[in-house]
Design a protein around this nucleic acid. Sequence first.
DNA 1: GTCTATACTTCGATAGAC
DNA 2: GTCTATCGAAGTATAGAC
Lengths: 195, 195
Amino acid sequence: MATQRRIGAESSQTRTALLDAAQQLMLDDGYAAVTSRRVAAKAGLKPQLVHYYFRTMDDLFLALLRRGAEQNLARLQGVVESPDPLRALWEFASDPRGTALVQELAALANHRKVIRSEIAAYAERFRQTETDVIAKVLAEQGVDTDEYPPSAVHVLMTGIARIMALEARLGVTTGHAEARELVERQLARLGARPT
Amino acid sequence: MATQRRIGAESSQTRTALLDAAQQLMLDDGYAAVTSRRVAAKAGLKPQLVHYYFRTMDDLFLALLRRGAEQNLARLQGVVESPDPLRALWEFASDPRGTALVQELAALANHRKVIRSEIAAYAERFRQTETDVIAKVLAEQGVDTDEYPPSAVHVLMTGIARIMALEARLGVTTGHAEARELVERQLARLGARPT
DNA sequence: GTCTATACTTCGATAGAC
DNA sequence: GTCTATCGAAGTATAGAC
């Protein structure tokens, strides 16, 4: 009801610089390190600018999430159009670029309702596209979808890729090489080309 | 060099109450919510007591991690002694009690070196015991360990279980039922009894 | 449209009283 | 061995100047 405060333009370079700084902080030091002061300091700006461009910290996190998700959706499009989509999907899900930011946002989401619902919504968009890719390959290969439902294969495949990326971040990699080889063999059986 | 400040006894009930409060906060609201003031408030105590019993917040997180890990190691012992260890391991890894706290600590570990190394050390202990369980079952069933190395099976099995628990926490469960059934079929082939 | 001066809240940690 | 009084630093956010 009070006089609506003004907000910085989305096209502003300063805004982008703040988002970049926030993302770097989040990746390096976790979401708790993303404070108005530290973000501004990293960007070489005043702390108050964070609130001018994003009003609240939640708004900043939301903007960060959206920007990252849109980038990943663009990269996912490359998977869809790949000549070897199953392998491309496996590599896409294994990519640390995708998981690191998401892990922090997922942890953050545990006590920020707006973030959680936004993440869940994006997750559904990714899942839809990815499962379609899997379904198409399984159909081409004549795989029995009663035994291997695409939705299940999706959970397993992307889940394994992401959990290894998460563990690797903590410095835990025992068994990863062996697990990767095992997955590679299954991918090959499903018609993916060898690496 | 300065006069070493005194620290509360480990046997203190107050100390346990603080740990309980911290754990609850962490599970409900994420690690960033675990502040000396909020922990104390939840336990109905003064904030300064947190620093008396744990000196720094890192010490508190470390105590939380150790207590949780020891509890889980005790539960893991039940898996080892189970008549159906493979299924018991699957259920153990799927248990939300084990994953929720670990997820928060893992996220926290990304910018707290002491936490990260302690988590990694515990992870190695769990991995060792769990992989031994898998190796024993695979040997009994005459499985070719070139194609299915126990370390790989361990990564896949526990990874899938944990990622589903993580996703479920965010409200993302699409495909989980199908994935679970698929895993169940594989477990059955490896001699685990049906649920 | 862009940024600053400022208010008020919450934080971790220590020194010292019981 | 247990707890309290207190401090300086850091946090979010707004109102208003340019």
